[in-house]
Amino acid sequence: MASGVGVNEQCLTTFQELKLKKKHKYIIFNLNKELTEIVVEKTSDVQDYEAFVADLPETECRWAIYDFEFEKEGAGKRNKIVFLSWSPDDAKIKQKMVFASSRERSNVP
């Protein structure tokens, strides 16, 4: 079951920029005001993970894609792109609901 929310084209292009060109460190997605489309809210190339967490609001839902970089012993640096659903308990039920039911759409890239 899905809510039928659409995805803005910009989301895909920004994601491609992150994945192929490494232009961004992370992308935060949000829904537009009418709750009909997923849009890019913020992109950043700050390397600090704390800065990324600080960008997520405490009482609202978001999705995010984070380019996680880690050292593997004896194998050098690796990158893993991770997708996060941000759904705090304090968020409004309606928002949690829309975000939960639209997640699969935002997963498409």
């Binding site: 809510s3 929310v5 709750l35 009909t36 309606k94 609901m97």
Partner: peptide, 9 residues
């Protein structure tokens, strides 16, 4: 909530 979404229609 689901039924109130414009996109659910």
């Amino acid at each position: 909530i689901l039924a109130s979404l414009g996109t659910f229609h």
